[in-house]
């Protein structure tokens, strides 16, 4: 149920974001979603792609430093308070969220959130126990394909 996320290091200067995305696109690899965390000096680009192992290879061959992390996708009701409820569950279980971001596409009345937990396995167990819906890779792909 975990998803593989690629992270890569980028210097924060014009044009740096486009290059890795082009490199992946050229290989015909679809990007499901991405998020960028940055400071004035550098950025961390996080990608969820269809063929992560191939994408990782392509990026590394092109000289980027790439990191592989397991993340968890959760869908929540896309209405006021929907996210707050999900966060309350996680907090109540004492799960550490390192960071999170929203998936670019919605599924019906639900928004999909990507969580980076310190302990993803325990997080999945808690989420399932509390009745939240954890989205796996195949489901995500179906969302993207529409």
């Amino acid at each position: 149920m975990k998803l593989q996320q690629l992270s890569l290091f980028l210097e924060n200067r014009p044009g740096r974001l486009g290059a890795p995305l082009e490199a992946i696109a050229k290989e015909g690899i679809n990007i499901l979603t991405l998020s960028l965390a940055d400071t004035a000096q550098f950025g961390i680009l996080r990608l969820i792609v269809r063929e992560w192992d191939k994408a990782k290879q392509v990026l590394e061959d092109a000289g980027w430093v790439v990191n592989l992390t397991e993340v968890v996708a959760v869908d929540v009701l896309d209405r006021p308070g929907g996210l707050a409820e999900a966060l309350a569950v996680l907090e109540g279980a004492g799960l550490n969220i390192e960071y999170m971001y929203a998936f670019s596409l919605r599924r019906g009345d639900k928004a999909i959130l990507i969580f980076r937990f310190e302990d993803p396995d325990r997080a999945i167990a808690v989420l399932l126990e509390k009745g939240l819906h954890v989205v796996d890779g195949d489901e995500l792909l179906s969302v993207v394909s529409g």
Binding site: Q5, S7, F9, A37, T39, F42, I44, R46, V65, V66, N67, T69, E98, Y99, R116
Partner: peptide, 15 residues
Amino acid sequence: EIRPEIFSDRMDRMQ
């Protein structure tokens, strides 16, 4: 220069 050994997807670790 960044290297895989010191790169993390977490901003707090990088800072």
